[in-house]
Simulated assay, not measured.
Amino acid sequence: MKMPDKVLTYRIYNNGKELIGTASVQMPSIEYLTETAKGAGIMGEVDSPAIGQVGSLTLALNFKTVEKGAINLLKPKAHALELRAAQQVFDSSIGSYKMQPVKIVTRAVPKKVDLGKLEVAAMTDSALELEVTYLKIYIDGERILEIDKFNYVFFINGTDYGEEIQKALGL
């Protein structure tokens, strides 16, 4: 049995090759759009999720200094960002640690930049927020999540919940 342990290290690339500076990453929160249902046949209220419809997906990159790669992400266009991580897992069947590759692919447009502060012998704490319109996650080369807001894809562990929506729209 593989027990997830920790992310050992990661890198952030723009367009699959341009290494973006040293940053910590706050991944998007995935929250369904909901509507409150109440009335006959329901005791109280139920917040009913709209399948495949999710709220704003914000990706935040926090930099130690003002960096050229970060400023480049301010261009008003979609950026193809790729995060590649080496994730450590403990394999109990052999009693040792293994590396597990994780790849996160996004398309995102800039929302906000905070250039941070300038202090002697201190980090700037610069921050960049991007709106994610496309998100795909692979673990060990297997696609486990894909959200494509413009193409009605909502894929989770082998099932595309957007497929019926695509059919209904004649896509």
Rank of each mutant, 00 (worst) to 15 (best):
E67T: 04
A50I: 06
T36N: 09
Q53N: 06
I42R: 13
P101S: 02
G21N: 05
L83D: 02
L33A: 15
I51N: 12
L61R: 02
Q87L: 09
Q88M: 01
S92M: 14
V66H: 09
M99C: 00
G69S: 13
I30R: 12
L81N: 07
S93M: 14
H79K: 07
A86W: 08
G39R: 08
D91P: 00
M43V: 11
K98A: 10
E31D: 14
A40D: 08
V54I: 09
P49C: 08
K77F: 04
V54A: 09
P28K: 01
G55E: 09
I20A: 02
P28D: 01
D91A: 06
A37F: 10
S56E: 15
G55Q: 06
Q100C: 03
V54L: 07
I71V: 10
L61K: 01
M99F: 11
R84W: 05
S48R: 15
P49V: 07
P101T: 11
K68A: 15
T22P: 08
S96M: 15
D47V: 09
N62A: 08
L33C: 10
H79M: 06
A78N: 08
K77M: 04
P101Y: 10
S29L: 13
K68C: 13
M43S: 04
Q100R: 12
L81D: 02
V25H: 03
R84F: 03
G21T: 02
K38H: 10
A60E: 14
A86M: 13
V54F: 08
N62D: 10
Q53K: 07
E45L: 03
K77G: 13
E31L: 11
A86S: 09
L74E: 07
A60F: 00
E45R: 03
K98E: 15
L33K: 14
K38D: 03
G55P: 05
E45N: 07
E45T: 13
T36V: 10
Q53S: 07
A70M: 11
A86Y: 08
E82S: 05
L83F: 12
V102S: 01
E67N: 06
Q88E: 07
G95R: 12
G95P: 01
S29P: 11
